[in-house]
Amino acid sequence: MPKEKAITAEMLTKRFGDFIAVNAISFEVDKGEIFGFLGANGAGKTTAMRMFCGLSLPSSGKATVAGLDIYKDNEAIKQRIGYMSQKFSLYEDLTVKENIRFYGGIYGKSDTYIKKETEILLHQLELEAQANTLVGALPLGWKQKLAFSVAIFHQPDIVFLDEPTGGVDPVTRREFWNMIYEAAAKGITVFVTTHYLDEAEYCDRVSIMVDGVIAALDTPAALKKQYHASGMDEVFQQLARGAKRQDN
């Protein structure tokens, strides 16, 4: 069964002392799906994502990523996933090209692969003229798009995006989502956390986390119907009203 699933979670839990950040969540993500992971700040989104990436060890529960067990096959999973963290994580003192080279290199890609793919990537991003510009000098929107391209540079099966569009203007956000669609069209499963509710509409399915548990999970259309709402923000309002946790 897990063969066709990109991600599965079963009663996955993370405790920090008395605090239960993620409380027994269970769900499955299909291959090639764009899966939105919504929730207010402190709902447990980032913690859950970190467990799938191997950055955080679960307290209990089971999970698989790309059909591999997150406890046993941690190292094998790393080859097959891409990750873009909340913090901007390219090197500002390296040029666009050097950053791409580096990330290609640490995933063990060959020089010819890196060279060829870098050209394609720069062309797609229209960054050819900036290839030798320091990343620190680029506008934020471009940085984020570049960071996403770098995260999928090694052609992972699944890419984890942790609030990728934070602080980016609406036009760039739209462009960013077009890039996500393109990646999904190539068969990459996209697992994305966000708190922009308009972005939830772009996902194939969304889960809404409230206080460490998954309060709802379905396609945006089905969720709106179920909660008699006109937009995802209304769905979210209804669910989040009962939340006890505020900011982390």
């Binding site: 901007f88 990330y103 640490i106």
Partner: peptide
């Protein structure tokens, strides 16, 4: 501090 360590830990390095 810059968060690049996180990316490195997720990578196969």
């Amino acid at each position: 501090e810059s968060g690049t360590m996180e990316i490195m830990l997720v990578s196969p390095l």
